[in-house]
Amino acid sequence: MSKENVLEIRDLHSSFFTDSGVVRAVNGVDLVIPQGKIIGLVGESGCGKSMTAKSVMGLLRYPGRIESGSIRFMDKELVGLPDKELRKLCGNEMSMIFQEPMTSLNPVLRVGRQVEEAILVHGKAEKRAEAKKLVLDMFEHVGIPEGEKRYSCYPHELSGGLRQRVMIAMAMVCRPRLLIADEPTTALDVTIEAQILQLMQKECRESGMSILLITHNLGVVAEICDFVYVMYAGRIVESGSVCEIFDHPAHPYTRGLLHSMPVIGGDQEYLYAIPGAVPNLLRLGAGCAFCGRCEKAQDRCREEMPELKAVGEDHFSRCFLHETEG
């Protein structure tokens, strides 16, 4: 594994083993996160983005589990790593923030204590007073004003933006190498969203931390990501640098996503929407999962799964179109 990569996911399969069948939510995902970069993972709801993240953090719940594949973090293989070893990494070397700052903080514990816990559990401070000081420093660092006062607040006493800053403080307080942000700004309004994104970008630049940013908002991706993975029905369908993806989208799904972004000042009368919905993962055919919604689908698409093929420099797409076009 290359020294510059913090995380390398290879052919990851994570599934839910339900009574009505096996739901292959993550179906052979390859993903690489270089050091100090912000990597976007984009897709519709239910395409397996969060499942990929939770696989890395060991947060999958019954009946979900990792079936096969490899997740290498730094020089450790996480698949099959004993719980105890994984816990040492979680919240320490790698951490995660969630979509809903309202529900992802424990409502009956003071926020300061919740952040402090991350310090104490990883032994970054001996005494509570020491830990508290670290918490207050971190609060200041992530832009929480009047930290001393906020320290003893309960989550419901804080605004959504402050709550998400607390979550970031909690995730950052042990100086992780990798931060997984699962739709961190979806529940916030736009001005707060910009602030939170800036904060994450700053962290990334200053500390050399890498970020896996999961989102369905392409605007956010364009703003802060270096590289993008587009996911559909459990598979990566396209990947490339932000410029490549936005300027030359290759996969019909990516094109559809870009096309369905509203343009301010544009003269379009209706907002475009990709027809249809994400397929039922229980009834995936042999072919491309997107063929049912694809305007350019051919017979071959229904029978055969295309491979991820290079369509440009560091730009890959999973579609037969490129063979005929190129």
């Binding site: 060991g58 919240g91 969630f98 816990e117």
Partner: peptide
């Protein structure tokens, strides 16, 4: 135990 904040607690590395 299904709540989001339980995921947060687990992601912190708590036993």
């Amino acid at each position: 135990m299904q709540s989001d904040y339980i995921d947060t607690a687990r992601a912190k590395g708590l036993r």
